[in-house]
Nucleic acid binder design. Structure first.
Lengths: 202, 202
DNA sequence: GTCTATAATATGATAGAC
DNA sequence: GTCTATCATATTATAGAC
């Protein structure tokens, strides 16, 4: 599906990427329902009919865009292996791609509207992300690095929600909201200050 | 503005409420950009022209709806005076008005799109909500009920983001997500377990 | 594979009768 | 204050030439 091809399909694959780039721009800045195929075509510098030759419908286009996002993203980027460092690293990276974050933020909320084609995608995505964090937190707990009394399942839902929520506030006020600082504060809250250190709360 | 009136304006005020009820339904289930004045009129059982006689434009209608939301909401509901209890009480209440929560969730994300009329509203609202929580957390800290090392400002941003984020997940999966449980977990995390109890983390 | 042309419908907004 | 009628424009999608 994402292989490089020779022959007549090479151009199609290129075109599809070009169109998806345009779709990203349009859906990120207008939302799905309000974004139009015409505008996507205009941004991609092709005719509407040409766009619809490559994607049979608006719904097709959105789903293809969401699929590509998953394919492109580093996903569970196992950079250092340290969860906190990896989360903060990803959060820092996200600040360099505000357009993609805007796309995700607008569409995820858009998806709760009636008959939205991205609904299943986001429902499954949230479930997957929560489960991923839960597993990571369980590892931390088993390593004795999770603060006592912290439920890995609840903490997983918290950081998933917190991350999305704070990115929304960052998109509205880029200069006022430091996404990394909030995530760091939360992660330090649920873990032990340092290795083996015993803390005393009085 | 919200006074009961006699004479010719009484009907207008009623009509406006009736229209705003319809607008809530439409914008909550479709979003602002995709929702249409025609649909609002249809739900309100009036003609499009009648709707536009009461609200000069679609933008006017949205802003009036957002204003009413603030006027109606109990706001900083100082029920018991205990922050945690009040937050959880509000969260429980929110579960009984999923339509209003959907409206808020869709529109707040919608508002980051180009030229959205609700952008200023949500920017200011987030600032206000964060500041409100920060003040409450500072009170908790001064009362010695905040866990040491917790920054009231960061905690305020966290719970604001977390609350919105988890409500989105709840709207997608009402049976799987327990909003109150996540908020409770976070609030207990940043406060001391009980009055005066000394906890020992080993 | 890309284009022009067009269908069928929806949109926000306005004019003017009553 | 509410209506019918209409404007000018936008929408997704399709047909068919090249």
């Amino acid at each position: 599906m994402s292989e490089v091809r020779r022959g007549p399909y090479a151009k199609t694959a290129e075109r599809r990427q070009q169109i998806l780039d345009a779709a990203l721009q349009v859906f990120a800045s207008r939302g799905y329902q309000a974004g139009s195929m015409r505008e996507v075509a205009r941004v991609a510098n092709i005719q509407l009919s040409t766009l619809m030759h490559h994607f049979n419908s608006k719904e097709d286009l959105l789903l293809a865009l969401l699929e590509r996002r998953d394919a492109d993203s580093p996903g569970q980027r196992t950079g250092t292996g340290d969860l906190i460092a990896d989360v903060l690293s990803q959060a820092r990276w996200n600040q360099t791609i505000p357009e993609l974050i805007a796309l995700y933020t607008v569409l995820s909320a858009d998806s709760i509207t009636d008959g939205h084609p991205g609904r299943d995608y986001f429902t499954e995505r949230f479930t997957t992300v929560r489960r991923g964090f839960q597993e990571e937190f369980e590892k931390l707990r088993d390593a004795g690095r999770l603060r006592s009394g912290v439920d890995p399942r609840l903490a997983a839902g918290c950081i998933t929600a917190l991350w999305d929520g704070i990115q929304l506030q960052w998109l509205l006020q880029p200069d006022e909201i430091d996404v990394v600082a909030y995530l760091k504060a939360f992660l330090e809250l649920i873990t032990h200050p340092a290795e083996g250190t015993v803390s005393y709360q009085g």
